[in-house]
């Protein structure tokens, strides 16, 4: 299970995440909601050590996966990112690689060279990402020929190919139409059967319909977290109620 305890993140000594403790249970989709600038994406990025390369960034507290500190000096961030995959707001397939090679990019980076195994892994990842039927006849095509929703699912396939335990999704549907959004959400439900999904979203309806748990962040602080149904029908904190009903933020 992915978890953080007393997590603090600073950029040039400016505090962005303040003492956040959260757990992301396996086989559950957790939505992180909050107004712009509240630190949602910053929090998400800390879970696969993306701040390691940001000058002036300082992460303290504990982030654990299956009980082990992912920031421990002996942990290789590349291996951490295999176990904790990430999908971004804007689909970012590698434009110079084919659809097939995009899918297996992570596996190649980890040293897998066996062509048969790579083909098998690519097909499995594309099936898992609900993209196989749409691309199986054009695996050698450039990914930029795909629609926005297909590109996003290709990025999900790329993340799934290395068999992660957690999938982080940073506003994965914000640039997609409702049909493409629905496909991503269906995919999230399927993926939930075998991994933990954490999604950052601005879309309250998406958080309500597509997550099991919801965490509300405000100004870098965790205000409330709990079962999504409870958060959206009977939130405990008035600040949560005001935010989800659109009265501030």
């Amino acid at each position: 299970m992915l978890a953080c305890q007393n997590l603090k993140i600073e950029f040039d000594r400016k505090s962005v995440i303040k003492d956040v403790s959260l757990e992301f249970p396996p086989q559950r989709i957790t939505a992180i909601i909050g107004p712009s600038g509240c630190g949602k994406s910053t929090l998400l990025r800390a879970f696969n050590r993306m701040h390691d390369l940001t000058p002036g960034a300082r992460v303290s507290g504990l982030v654990t996966l299956s009980g082990k500190d992912i920031y421990h000096k002996d942990e290789d961030p590349v291996l951490v990112r295999r176990r904790i995959g990430m999908v971004f707001q804007k689909a970012n397939p590698f434009p110079t690689l084919s659809i097939f090679n995009n899918t297996i990019a992570g596996l190649r980076l980890s040293g897998l060279r066996n062509r048969a195994l790579l083909k098998e892994a690519a097909e499995k990842a594309l099936v898992d990402a609900a993209l196989w039927d749409e691309v199986k006849d054009r695996l050698k095509s450039n990914p930029m020929s795909l629609s926005g929703g297909q590109q996003q699912r290709l990025c999900i396939a790329r993340a799934l190919a290395v068999d992660p335990e957690v999938l982080l999704m940073d506003e994965p549907c914000s640039a997609l139409d409702p049909i493409a959004t629905a496909k991503i959400e269906e995919l999230m439900f399927r993926l939930r059967e075998r991994l933990s999904v954490v999604i950052v979203t601005h879309n309250m309806q998406q958080a309500a319909r597509a997550s099991d748990r919801t965490a509300f962040l405000w100004m870098g602080e965790l205000i409330e977290e709990g079962e999504t149904e409870a958060i959206f029908t009977t939130p405990k904190k008035s600040m949560t109620e005001d935010y989800i009903t659109g009265r501030f933020g």
């Binding site: 309250m204 309500a208 959206f232 029908t233 009977t234 939130p235």
Partner: peptide
């Protein structure tokens, strides 16, 4: 308006 919380209730 997709109401939530007290509004939804």
């Amino acid at each position: 308006h997709s109401p939530a919380a007290t509004d939804l209730r």
